[in-house]
Design a protein around this nucleic acid. Structure first.
Lengths: 201, 201, 201, 201
DNA sequence: CATGAATGAGGATTCATTCAT
DNA sequence: CATGAATGAATCCTCATTCAT
């Protein structure tokens, strides 16, 4: 690329190109996969991702031999941010509110992971490391939030954190590629949260 | 209006007035499809279903020209039973209990319909008759149950019946082919039902 | 059918049914095939023809075991009329005009025989009887017309009648299913006829 | 303007800037298609062509995503040569002879394009670029030849160039796969040319 | 005799994955 | 290291033809 920044008719592409140079192909691929997965699900054709990242499919396979490797990479980038957000919330609000806030935050995280739940439950052993990341990072976070809310009396039911997390994820996309209607999903998640408040049966 | 003609509101071929052997094949196909769909989702290869039914692919296409026709057939076989069950429950127990009981009944119905939600939300117009059946049979049933439970004071929140139904369906399989763990799902559905009891926010 | 003629919303179908009763299935099939061939070419699916004739495919195969049998039948029905027309023309006008008139008549005959030329040249031995009918009925007719026109001095070139007939047929449809633009075709046929008038090279 | 870039006015993949092996395959495919089309028409199975070129079907689809792309490629290879030949003929002989010579040259070109006319008239939009090439390259060439021959008095009738070209093409194969008998066809084309000499009616 | 159900070969197309350049 | 060309298995769907009812 020469001195002039070659004003592009597609800022996104240009941006990708620039950062690809700076950050390397692996990052460009994760970036591309994030977008593609959100649009077409984790079963999207590899070629689509490679094209979007501006690299050849060979390069994709070099960095991520298994599809699940790429999914994991996409996943983890946001996982940390989501986990970190919990601490701020715990510090800033009472347990019950923190719980609600974080679940809605998690909702936003999972909303762009079309087909993730399906992959996780596919039984394919390739996805086990992914499930493990789920279990070791997110589940403990939620457990902490739930315990605090129970201790403070904000919620009255005990639920399994992993189960609850999976339920929220499922509510956010029944498997369909382009689940719009985030309002619908949010309402049902809130109903689930309300369930935690109602006396146990 | 349980056993009305229901001849060809979907693409499937008329079932009455069919030669005995033909009807036998059609039934075998629905049977096979039910199993295959439960195991591998509604996107399973046609050939798999035909083989399992012991017929050629041509026969499958004769009876069910569109994949959605076969799905509809599988679907409807149990849809009626599920709808009918509501009446008995309404007669036998108070509104709140009837609501809970029917939702759990619906859970059992939907549990074996892997990928159905995904198909419904795929945007593919072929699935519209299926979505319509959902809307015209199940949604009104749930609306009736919800209204009664509100009137009796058993539940305190109003929710959209279609939305609630979709949520329950999603909770029962995140899209993954072989969702085991029906206990997990039932617990989360009960939590959603509990949410209906908690005071609206 | 009862006394009332059951006024149909589709006169053509009704008509076909009536005549099918009266004339037998074979005739109904030839009738149907004529229409279908004109619309979709001689390679149209058998099922289409059987449906249009209101009979099962089995019946079609009983009467016309080979596709070429059906084509022949369709063909011959009009072949005779075309041949007969020549005699009238010969009697009513001078040789040159009669030749032109008959060729244009033949043009009308061949215009509805989409794909016939292709079938004839396909090399498939099944079409030999068809080619034979062509040779024994149409070719002699044209030979007579050509000879008379040469004798009278109306045309100056000798051409092979079979060749000329094939050429006219080809001009009338290049193989495409729905050759419209009959004007275009007629103009080119007339040019060919004009060629007969120009002095031999 | 003979060897202009002509990069992607059809769907085929760019030919320059291609890896040596890839270009080799593309050429082999065009070569194979030329033969197969001549033998079995442009509707021949894709597999046949791929096999003959010694490549997998995937390779064929990579280079020529649409069947019409392959046809175009086959077509254009000879189109230019045919158009170029006109200039030489115009320079070397009187208008009337040049016209005849070029038409016979065109005859040779079209003789191996079995089913081309049918494809062109099929109404399938995929063939539009092909028809366009026909219209923008061949038709103007013939128009020039016809005008010159009229100006010199060599021919006496005006005809539409596109129409005449189509007629010649049709005469060269009525759609049948293996039109032998090039003598027959040449004779009829000459008759059409003779028609141009006869006084208009 | 008529029917139309069943069969399955045939042909198109996509996409994950490998490997020569 | 990166590339993207090549491969071919997998899947879809159509239709000619046979044969039980």
């Amino acid at each position: 690329m020469s001195a002039v920044s070659r004003t592009s008719d597609d800022g996104a592409v240009e941006h990708r190109r620039m950062r690809a140079d700076a950050r390397g192909n692996a990052d460009a691929l994760v970036e591309a996969a994030t977008t593609v997965f959100a649009e077409a699900g984790v079963a999207a054709p590899v070629r689509t991702i490679a094209d979007r990242a501006g690299v050849g499919v060979g390069t994709l396979y070099r960095h991520f031999p298994l599809r699940s490797d790429l999914i994991s990479a996409v996943f983890r980038r946001e996982l940390d941010a989501c986990v970190d957000a919990a601490e701020e919330m715990e510090a800033a609000m009472p347990p019950g509110e923190a719980l609600d806030a974080w679940i809605m935050r998690f909702t936003g995280f999972v909303a762009t992971k079309q087909g993730l739940a399906a992959a996780l439950h596919s039984g394919d052993t390739a996805y086990e490391p992914l499930a493990a990341a789920f279990a070791t990072r997110l589940v403990p976070t939620l457990e902490r939030l739930l315990s605090a809310a129970i201790a403070s009396g904000d919620i009255s039911r005990r639920v399994d954190a992993a189960e609850f997390l999976a339920a929220v994820a499922n509510l956010c996309h029944g498997g369909g590629p382009s689940s719009r209607a985030s309002g619908r999903e949010a309402r049902m998640v809130r109903l689930l949260l309300a369930g935690l408040r109602s006396p146990a049966d």
